[in-house]
């Protein structure tokens, strides 16, 4: 099993957000975590990535059978956990190519593979950029600086492509995207989907799931999963809204 979350309680600033969440993910699966605003969807993604603001009060997270909570955020990343941010951060003065090569080589070093020099890496980057239709001019630009919302999201998927994670968490990747950009991002994710990785889509809307079809849909309300099903559950949610699951949760 790739990821196993058992009875997870998480708080931020003393306020409980997740209250007894259970979730299991295998390699080769795409999971959608849906739910109304404030249900704890993004919290789940951030806790898995190791965001320092969130406190795990109780419970267990096993990643490839090991205790994920023992690892710092950067160690998790080098072990293959990746989160695409809802709001990617700008890093002025550091080019995309420099940044990605630093991250890539940190991972290679960690797993005992060969690090790439700039020329070698550039070849890799060109290949990966095709997945999200990014032009090489983006490589020279500072990370996310002056990027449009759609470019930032595409850049997140490019990072995912380069770092080749085992567990990819996409936090509201569809937010702020027009339909064309959404399609590009979704196709990118579909290309990267494999039998060797698990993908978690955190989303409020069903829209994204038209393009990236999930194997499982989990509905989060009040800090725990209140309903689970296949892709048809997402369509049902789109039609009925979240009120009925919220009611069911009480």
């Amino acid at each position: 099993m790739l990821l196993e979350i058992k009875d997870l309680y998480v708080a931020i600033d003393g306020k409980n957000i997740l209250k007894g969440l259970n979730l299991s993910i295998n390699k080769g699966e795409v999971h959608a975590i849906m739910g109304p605003n404030g249900s704890g969807k993004s919290t789940l993604a951030k806790v898995l990535a190791g965001h320092p603001s969130y406190e795990v009060v109780k419970g267990e997270i096993l990643y490839e059978g090991k205790d994920l909570l023992e690892l710092d955020p950067d160690e998790r990343a080098r072990e293959g956990v990746f989160m695409a941010f809802q709001y990617p951060v700008e890093v002025p003065g550091v080019s995309n190519a420099q940044f990605l090569r630093l991250a890539y080589n940190e991972k290679m070093k960690h797993i005992g593979e060969e690090e790439l020099d700039p020329l070698e890496f550039n070849d890799l980057l060109k290949e990966k950029a095709k997945i999200v239709g990014m032009e090489p001019e983006f490589f020279k630009r500072s990370v996310n600086e002056g990027f449009s919302g759609g470019e930032k999201k595409r850049n997140e998927i490019l990072q995912m492509a380069v770092l080749d994670p085992k567990l990819a968490l996409l936090d509201e990747t569809d937010s702020g995207l027009d339909i064309d950009a959404l399609r590009v991002v979704a196709e990118g994710v579909n290309t990267l989907k494999s039998q060797e990785n698990g993908i978690v889509l955190v989303t409020h809307y069903q829209r994204l799931l038209n393009y990236i079809v999930p194997d499982f849909v989990h509905v989060l309300a009040g800090g725990k999963i209140v309903k689970e099903g296949g892709k048809e559950l997402a369509i049902e949610l789109e039609e009925k809204g979240y009120d009925w699951v919220r009611a069911a949760a009480q």
């Binding site: 320092p52 603001s53 955020p73 950067d74 990343a77 990746f82 941010f85 951060v89």
Partner: peptide
């Protein structure tokens, strides 16, 4: 900014480098 630091850490960069 903690958020900016976390972004770089989440890409696998060690803290001093980030």
């Amino acid at each position: 900014e903690e958020e900016e630091l976390f972004y770089l850490l989440s890409r696998g960069l060690p803290e001093d480098l980030a």
